[in-house]
Write a protein that binds this DNA or RNA. Sequence first.
DNA 1: TGTCATTTGTGACTTTAGTCACATACAGTG
DNA 2: CACTGTATGTGACTAAAGTCACAAATGACA
Lengths: 203, 203
Amino acid sequence: MVTKNNLFHSLLNEAIYHSGQVRSFNAGSVILNINAYIKSIPIVLSGSIKVIKTDEEGQEILLYYIKPGESCIMSFLAGIHNDTSKIKAIVEEDAAILLIPVEKAGAWIREFPEWTDFIFTLYQKRFEELLEVVNAVAFQKLDSRLLQLLHQKASLFHTKEIMVTHQQLADDLGTAREAVSRLLKQMENDKLIALSRNKITLL
Amino acid sequence: MVTKNNLFHSLLNEAIYHSGQVRSFNAGSVILNINAYIKSIPIVLSGSIKVIKTDEEGQEILLYYIKPGESCIMSFLAGIHNDTSKIKAIVEEDAAILLIPVEKAGAWIREFPEWTDFIFTLYQKRFEELLEVVNAVAFQKLDSRLLQLLHQKASLFHTKEIMVTHQQLADDLGTAREAVSRLLKQMENDKLIALSRNKITLL
DNA sequence: TGTCATTTGTGACTTTAGTCACATACAGTG
DNA sequence: CACTGTATGTGACTAAAGTCACAAATGACA
């Protein structure tokens, strides 16, 4: 497991030990909301966080997951520029999160190359994930997006039995529940999945 | 105008002066292609570059423009990680571009806080622009996306007379030319624009 | 001025997904 | 077991946009 003490090496870990604070959050907790000012950068130790973009009408779409050992890059960016968040972050699985004050996160850039590399690597990953979302929404049909989402959730939860409702899937995809239900039924007929209440099993 | 010598202050400018190289590119030149390895980071001095995402079937969609004084953050990220580009960058208006070797761009992070800030600020901007693209593609209808694109181009070129074909607009939006033509006709009827061959005028 | 490549206009049709309105099924609780 | 809230299934319809197949207009230039 990722802990506060084995994320990085020596001096940086020392710094984190002195400045960071670990907190627990239950599934469903909103870690970061649209337009919120950011005072600390979260690093996920266990559990997972989902990051979504919401529009004015409350429509939402899943952007990516933050997994153990990763941070929320949007917090970092907006944080060091004293700006507001453009996204919303919700705990998906109960999570332990290491909170680091923004000032420290900014200062460490100059002190610890390892920290800088951590930030940049994460940046690149998020950037590529966002590009994937653009690609999916712009060019892929709902059925393949849905199947991909199911595989993503299966991999995140390390199980083929995904506990989720059609409505939740529809929300993640930014579409209508009926469309999801119909496609799932189709996928069941095609022997790709098995359906039951609150649960979808990948075959 | 932005030049090689007034982008940053003192020492950093000195460094850029010694390491950077200015080159000219004509409109249409491909600066960066999908899967290309990256050896230098471009900073636009004049003109503009458009960054697009293309999928396997050659479908493409406009992500954002790089304007004078800005750089291509994807190059930077992929560059310092010795990775390949996931996007394509094409010169939109004839451009003068300052090329900086990747190693330098990486090293300066430790030497010049101003450089680091430049990179992070740019990152944040691109991230937010990408979020806007996701939002537009996921939730907005083609007519408003088209109108927004026209305004974006008008502002970029500093003119209300946009020299562009319907096909080019369709490509930027990742959609079909016929759809664009029909919507433009509608917008002309609504007195929002005036149409002529290769040219659209905002009213 | 006539020719020709390119651009634009348009009808007809299909596909995909969003909307509305219910019916039905399920699981947990009293 | 009956009740009840939630989840799922489904038909019918609408809307948006993609596709196909041409027609018409435009402007460059021979």
